[in-house]
Design a binder for these strands. Structure first.
Lengths: 249, 249
DNA sequence: CGCGATCTTGAGGCAATTCAAAACTAGTGG
DNA sequence: CCACTAGTTTTGAATTGCCTCAAGATCGCG
């Protein structure tokens, strides 16, 4: 039986409240949808963004608030979620460096989700109208943004598919693999999911209770598929996890 | 107890295999994302589309096939679905006049969904590359398309939210209301959902079995919330249905 | 009128939830 | 360095909502 250890997930405590100008330009120019632009254009776009820092657990905005801004996550981890009337949370997306989110629609509609910082984060903020002006001026950028949205729609459809047909075990296995693809990091323990990940968060992502998540995680551990502790999970046998999905009927 | 009747859903048997040039231009110019274009531009775009007709049950394309085309539904009803390994289907979206679908991403990736005609339909087809050229030439159009995608992402998030937290009854109530907003039509029976809708299809949309769908529909009927028969449902007490959602914990 | 398809209903089983308590962990301050 | 504590995780037992399996009822069509 694997011995429990301190979490291998490093907590980056950057002075997130001040992302340097350097960092800003670096982040912006690395964004998939700005990559093809001349650096002069990026500098100009840069002036439209304001930077902001948040601490773990802090909320960037709540659903139903008027949606005025577009956010770009420069550093750290954040999550998009909805909460039910009963107080239960549903996590819709895990956001990492370079992801954009906020008021995606054209008109000023209320946010449909809540955004919360999971670690210390630094975000770049701009208004919807300014962002849309950029898209209008640089059609190539608009197409890239379109691709990102199309990809997210696919991902959402994946979730719907899983939620309506797969067992709790399968959904959790699938989620672990998806997370490892997004924030996986090779460490001693295996392929570490490099973000704080408690049983309850896993539950919120997969539509089960935290008790069920715990039971499944325990089983996976016994079967040697993963290693895990407080707030962290690492894959020790990715291939076997993937097999689990195929074998599902 | 309400008496059963022949389905009030009219089956439009247009000669769908030939949408007239008139219809094509009308459809295209009414599309939300082409609406702002000068008619000359629309005529030019029109030449890039080829029309095609399908009969109920016919497949436009299957998931995993190479995704080369963009489709615009001109007339009729179609659905986007995925099927599990066990043969169970999951309906992701109901498509109506003006909806576009197909290979939404930039690069030629396989379709991630299957598209099936639900009635006699007429679609306009173009290649991904041609469609993207249009978007590049008319930035306003790209922004509109972006809005459509953003709205669909919201809708998908709605589904995820429901699937991970609500009961079968709630999900079905929610789905009926959503459908009534999309294809609702006032008739004698009430607010008719104007598309062929069997218990099994309702089940595929809500992630339950057709038996469960049937039980819930029966209950709703007893409670006077809806009227229904073979392949059709009409809302007789929309307000009460909506209350059901709010009262859910 | 009879056939195929759709829909309803029942009974039993099972996966996942709920409720509850105990075990563990990592960080805290004595 | 160790005991303490708050938060997390595990495990158990009882319950339940939905699924599965299986008839039977009903409808619409030819």
């Amino acid at each position: 039986m694997a011995k429990r250890r301190k979490s291998p997930v490093e907590i980056i405590t950057t002075d997130a409240h001040m992302c340097s100008l350097d960092l800003r330009l670096k982040i912006l120019s690395r964004l998939p949808f700005f990559r093809d632009l001349p650096s002069k254009a990026i500098e100009k776009i840069n002036t439209q963004f304001v930077e902001k820092g948040y601490q773990p657990g802090a909320y960037l905005y709540f659903s139903d608030e008027p949606g005025r801004n577009i956010y770009v996550l420069a550093e750290g981890r954040a999550r998009l979620l909805r909460s039910t009337a009963a107080g239960k949370q549903v996590m819709l997306d895990l956001l990492t460096s370079g992801d954009f989110f906020g008021a995606l629609g054209s008109v000023e509609q209320p946010y449909t989700e809540t955004a919360q910082a999971q670690s210390d984060i630094c975000v770049l903020v701009t208004s919807v109208s300014d962002f849309r002006a950029v898209l209008k001026n640089y059609p190539g950028v608009a197409l890239q943004v379109l691709d990102v949205l199309a990809a997210r729609l696919q991902a959402a459809h994946d979730s719907i598919h899983l939620l309506s047909s797969a067992s709790a075990e399968t959904r959790i296995a699938h989620t672990l693999l998806k997370l490892s693809r997004k924030v996986g990091k090779s460490v001693d323990e295996g392929l570490l999911i490099d973000t704080p990940l408690g049983r309850d968060e896993l539950a919120e992502m997969t539509g089960v209770t935290s008790e069920t998540a715990s039971r499944v995680i325990s089983q996976f551990q016994k079967d040697g598929l993963i290693a895990s502790g407080r707030q962290w999970v690492a894959l020790t046998n990715k291939a076997a996890l993937e097999e689990l999905l195929d074998s599902e009927r």
